[in-house]
Amino acid sequence: MTVRSIVSAIAVAFTAYLAARGLWWPRGDVDHPWIIFLALPLYLVVTWLWVAWGARRPAKAPRGAVPARQSSPPLWAAALALAVAVIVPNAVLFAVAPSSRTQPFATWVIGGVGALMTIVMVRRRPWVAWIGLALAAASVSLWIGILPALSLGLVGSIVWVAAAQLLMIALDSAARDTVQLAELQQAASAWQASQAGRQRERRVQVQRALQAAGPILGRTIETGGNLRPPERLEARLAEGRLRDELRGPRLLDDIVRAELESARRRGITVTMLDEGGLEGLSEPELVTIREELARILESASSRRLIIRTSPHHQTAVTIVGRSGDGDGLSDEDSVELWHEIPRVR
């Protein structure tokens, strides 16, 4: 049994109790009992319609999701509620003898309509609730006067409806806060996952750097920097491998690493720069780019190679081969190789 079903059962029992009060009157105090016998079922049918609206159990929401707010009853149900707020008080007070219109079997309509408008308010129809309560208050006041109406239950009905509206406002605010909290939690989880991924990537890069440069660094410290020519070559190669791992990790695989080392052993100075543009590529597309990059490195003969990723929508990687040692490209005659690897085949 859910909280909703318990509250609905209480609402049905309470409104039935209010209506039952209108069936117990002394002889001679009601001039037209048949009108009451028609008004009571009308009140109960419309009230219980509002209580039972949306009672069908909604689909189970995913774990961690905020349940969707149920829809309000349609306009025709609101029109029925307003009709009851006008018809039932006037019908009951008309059917009762003038001398008995302040008796409980007549004034139950004040609390009855107040209970109905409280249900209407809970069902997200605030304007209908207040209009219906105002119509009922005006009808009762015309029959028995405004002060007797206030003392016989109208104040309580106003308090019920106002309390229901404040409760709905508080629940809506809590629902918004819950949604914001869920969004913040999802953002925090995503941030933690990204940080964990970056930490793993950094650990892998550090391990590769240690594998590449660790032995030669140890040898450099051991000899005080007095390395033999083969050791100096290994130091330059280790430095190149370390720069590659830090500057262009997305362009690297075992084949590309081998071709980079082979090119450096041939005397080629290789500079690799990942300047963005590969974020939206899938792993198969990156594999294709690496394969083409490895082929270019295998056949390169320039003294200097500059490999840059590109944010251009058509070009993924640009490879420039130069015959000089300068860093710039002002001398067009020194450019021996210009190759662009496209993003999409």
Rank of each mutant, 00 (worst) to 15 (best):
A170N: 04
D172K: 05
S141Q: 08
L150F: 09
M121Y: 08
G145E: 15
V128C: 08
A174G: 13
G153R: 03
G145P: 10
I119P: 00
A174P: 01
A137W: 03
A137Y: 04
A170K: 08
G112N: 05
A106H: 03
G132S: 10
A136V: 09
G111A: 05
D172N: 14
V128I: 11
R176Y: 13
S157Y: 00
T178A: 15
L135Y: 08
W160R: 01
V122L: 15
L135W: 06
L167W: 15
R125K: 14
M117Y: 01
I119G: 02
L116I: 06
T118K: 01
L154N: 04
V161Q: 00
R176S: 04
I110G: 07
G112H: 02
L150I: 09
R124K: 09
A163W: 10
S151V: 08
V159F: 13
W108V: 02
S157T: 06
V179M: 10
A174Q: 14
V122D: 09
M121Q: 09
I158T: 11
S157A: 15
W143M: 12
G153Y: 01
M117G: 00
A137V: 03
P148V: 10
R125E: 01
A149N: 04
W130S: 13
G112L: 06
V155H: 02
A106P: 02
W127H: 02
S139W: 05
S139P: 07
I110V: 10
L133C: 02
G156D: 06
L167E: 13
G156V: 01
S139K: 07
R123A: 12
D177S: 08
L167M: 14
A164V: 07
A134D: 07
W130K: 01
W143T: 10
R124M: 05
I110H: 04
Q103M: 11
V179N: 07
V155W: 13
G111T: 01
L150R: 03
I144Y: 11
M121E: 07
V140D: 04
L147R: 07
A129N: 06
G111V: 02
R176T: 11
A138E: 04
V128R: 05
V109K: 03
S151K: 11
G153N: 05
I131W: 11
L135R: 02
V159R: 12
V113N: 03
L171D: 05
V122Q: 00
P148M: 14
V161A: 10
R123I: 12
Q103F: 08
V140T: 10
Q103P: 06
L133M: 08
W160K: 01
A170G: 06
G112V: 06
P104Q: 09
M117V: 10
M168E: 14
A170W: 13
A149K: 04
Q103W: 12
I146K: 09
I146F: 15
L116W: 10
L135F: 02
V122H: 10
A106V: 08
